[in-house]
Amino acid sequence: MTTVGLLYPGHLAEDDYPRLEVLLDSDIRLPLVHTDLAEDTYGEPELLALGAPERLAAGVEELRLAGAASVVWASAVGGFIRGPEGAQRQIRELARSAGVPASSTSFGFAHAVRRLGAAKVGVAAIWPAEIMARCTAFLASEGVEVVAAAGGDGSVPAARAAGWGRDEVLELARSADHPEAAAVLLPDTALHTVAHLEDLEAELRKPVLTASQVTVWEGLRLADRRAWAFHLGRLFAKPGL
């Protein structure tokens, strides 16, 4: 049995994780604890507060009791908004609090891109331009070149994006596709994407990395557990297939 503990902000697209658990090996468990999502906004003070140490630490004990072998802060923007050093400090504090290896969706994307050997990527999210710029800068600090970035104007709240279906998610992914991009990233954990991974990769004809998929993959990587699965995109594809 391998248990990956997840700290997820608010109540948005968390039902992606039970779907992932079903599609993965039967002895993988993904217990999830909700952290406080005070405001659905893209203001920097609010985003910094989203991943405050005390908020993350509040959910750790429940995951420890669940037998988590690793813990992942399931928020990309809640990590990279602190910058490279702040994001590193955040997961160090989380690991210390949890007593097990820890990471965040932000670092999960950098590690997953390396795993696929995709040096250049496109990135699409609903975030406004200034938040997309922070995301691009964070990825650059991890050696990932963003050749296309597509964001919003901040007018779409996360709660509304959580209700998007296949067509809206596909349109978002297409907006960041680029001939030089070896993969396309959808880093917003508010989006439901697991049910659409096969369609996304078929449409773009390249790997597509999404927040819920990458979050779980990162937790399994930390737990030193390799897992292969159908229907979960190139990241979970068995080598040689």
Rank of each mutant, 00 (worst) to 15 (best):
M1W: 12
V4A: 08
G5E: 00
G5N: 06
G5R: 02
Y8S: 12
Y8T: 14
G10R: 05
E14M: 11
E14G: 14
D16A: 09
D16K: 00
Y17K: 07
R19Y: 09
L23F: 04
D25R: 15
I28T: 11
R29M: 06
P31F: 02
P31R: 01
L32P: 06
D36W: 15
A38F: 11
D40H: 11
Y42E: 00
G43T: 13
E44H: 13
L48P: 00
E54D: 11
E54W: 10
R55W: 00
R55Y: 07
A58R: 09
A58P: 01
V60M: 08
E61F: 12
L63W: 00
A66K: 01
G67Q: 08
G67T: 00
A68W: 01
A69P: 01
W73V: 05
S75E: 06
V77K: 10
G78R: 02
G79A: 03
R82S: 02
E85K: 09
E85N: 02
G86A: 00
G86L: 06
A87Y: 09
A87G: 01
Q88G: 07
Q90L: 07
I91S: 04
R92N: 07
R92W: 05
R96E: 03
G99T: 06
V100C: 01
P101H: 06
S103M: 09
T105L: 03
F107L: 10
G108N: 05
A110W: 08
R114P: 02
A118Q: 01
K120E: 13
M132K: 05
T136M: 14
A137C: 10
G143N: 12
G143V: 11
V144H: 03
E145R: 15
V146N: 10
A149Y: 07
A150R: 03
G152C: 09
G152E: 04
D153L: 12
G154K: 12
V156H: 10
R160K: 15
A161M: 00
A162F: 04
G163M: 11
G165Y: 01
E168Y: 00
E171D: 14
P179Q: 05
L185R: 12
L185K: 12
D188R: 11
D188H: 13
D188Y: 06
D188A: 15
V194N: 08
V194I: 12
L197K: 02
L197N: 07
E198W: 10
E198I: 11
D199R: 13
E201M: 04
L204D: 02
W217D: 04
W217V: 01
W217C: 05
L222W: 02
A229N: 05
F230V: 14
L232H: 09
L235N: 05
F236M: 07
A237G: 09
K238Y: 13
P239K: 15
P239V: 15
G240D: 12
L241I: 13
